[in-house]
Nucleic acid binder design. Structure first.
Length: 256
DNA sequence: ATGGCGCGCGCAGCGCGA
């Protein structure tokens, strides 16, 4: 089994890239973020023609998440239970007995802003939710754009980013609190690849200059961790015309 | 130097992302 996460930064703008990528990489399931699209505009027929079912939680202009799967999507849930939020950032489904929770964590804008406070509140609520999911589903995979670079090694220029949003200590502590539930950052399960970033700014040729961050993650429960086989950050789509600023990240399993 | 680039919205230029 293979599970991918990809922030497409507008599904309408990236539909061609997504379909081409799925044709070349027929993963079992993929969590998408930043659809920026209402449910009724989702290209369901084109996705189904590729052999995928879709569970979606869309929103006009901002946010929006989906899980696509080549297998049945069961027990689909949206949002964080008990956390009032207009923004569509969470969708969960069970695929072949594996619970997948797919996230688009708030960006946080700037330290001290209302959006930053919302991000930290959101991550606190997420921790409660994932604790419950972990208790219910021993086979748990959490995919998403977490908007947190967990350590300085995940930042091209740690000094320039020190204390900035995505790298601040409260954000990193909130990320570690997810791991303390018993989840593992699957990236750390393998020898660090030469290229470890998953996002590069569109400006200033950041991708070409290797100025990126690792902010897209796949967390796994202990039962899933045992089955992990490989982890891959695919930079090919980032080279295309009008790319998403994020790359797809794929975790492969032996047994699941 | 507070923008750069790319998106949606909507038809000009702004809000937002990371």
């Amino acid at each position: 089994m293979k599970i991918t996460t990809w922030n497409v930064n507008s599904l309408r703008a990236r539909q061609g890239h997504l379909l081409d990528w799925l044709k070349a990489n027929p993963v079992d399931a993929i969590g998408l973020q930043e659809l920026k699209m209402q449910d009724e505009h989702f290209p369901r027929a084109e996705i189904e023609a590729m052999g995928y079912q879709a569970a979606i939680s869309g929103q006009k202009a901002y946010n929006g998440v989906a899980i696509l799967s080549r297998h049945a999507l069961e027990d689909v849930h949206r949002d964080i239970p008990g956390f009032a939020d207009e923004q569509k950032r969470v969708i969960a489904a069970t695929v072949r007995g594996v619970r997948i929770v797919n996230l688009y964590v708030p960006n946080g804008q700037t330290i001290g802003s209302e959006k930053y406070a919302y991000k930290l509140r959101w991550l606190g609520a997420l921790r409660e939710y994932l604790g419950e999911e972990l208790a219910r589903h021993p086979q748990l995979v959490v995919t998403g754009d977490f908007n947190v670079a967990p350590t300085d090694a995940d930042v091209h220029d740690p000094l320039a980013w020190a204390g900035q949003v995505l790298c601040s200590e409260p954000e990193r502590a909130a990320f570690r609190a997810l791991l303390e539930l018993g989840l593992q950052d699957s990236f750390t399960r393998f020898p660090a690849p030469e290229q470890r970033f998953t996002w590069w700014d569109y400006r200033q040729g950041a991708f070409r200059r290797g100025r990126g961050l690792r902010i897209d993650h796949i967390l796994v429960s202990p039962e899933v961790s045992k089955e992990c086989q490989s982890f891959h950050i695919d930079t090919v789509p980032r080279e295309l015309e009008r790319p998403s600023d994020h790359t797809p990240v794929t975790l492969s399993f032996r047994g699941l």
